[in-house]
């Protein structure tokens, strides 16, 4: 067995699990991002805020644009009826998916750390998941 193979053997199981999950979620994320944008800019589905309105106000502060156009922010994008069939909402969701990708990877890592009885890193990984979930919940904005 050469050095390279020996090193591969020494890589933690949890690293390999994280890598596998990351590869899967990031590939899906990039495809979703591209697809969502095509649906959005080609207006294949109706939009909740017209693109021209966004373009006419993108020099404003985010809070001012929100006030003026009532652009969706956070999970409020899903609050209107038939939200999932709106082009801009699909594009927003593709971005949210990317922002959630690390949570998925860390959740798998936490379980693997726990199975390996590495309680210190299980705690660190769970705490990290909690921090990201609190951020994604919008509780602290």
């Amino acid at each position: 067995m050469n050095d390279k193979e020996k090193n591969t053997d020494k890589i933690d199981q949890v690293q390999l699990v994280y890598a596998r999950v990351l590869e899967m979620v990031s590939h899906v994320g990039m495809a979703f991002l591209a697809l969502g944008y095509v649906v959005y800019v080609l207006q294949l589905l109706p939009l909740s805020v017209p693109i021209d309105a966004i373009a006419g106000n993108w020099h404003l502060k985010a809070s001012e644009m929100q006030q003026k156009l009532h652009t969706p922010a956070g999970w409020s994008i899903l609050s209107s009826s038939g939200a999932l069939f709106k082009g801009d909402v699909v594009s927003y969701l593709s971005i949210y998916y990317l922002a959630m990708a690390t949570v998925v990877c860390l959740a798998f890592a936490s379980v693997t750390f726990y199975r390996e009885k590495n309680y210190l890193y299980t705690t660190i990984a769970v705490l990290q998941v909690l921090v990201l979930l609190v951020a994604a919940s919008g509780l602290i904005h």
């Binding site: 969502g36 373009a55 993108w58 652009t71 801009d88 927003y92």
Partner: peptide, 15 residues
């Protein structure tokens, strides 16, 4: 996520 909730993420620009 903070930027998302403050309305500072616009897919038109970000993607």
């Amino acid at each position: 996520w903070v930027y998302i909730f403050k309305g500072a993420v616009v897919p038109l620009i970000a993607v």
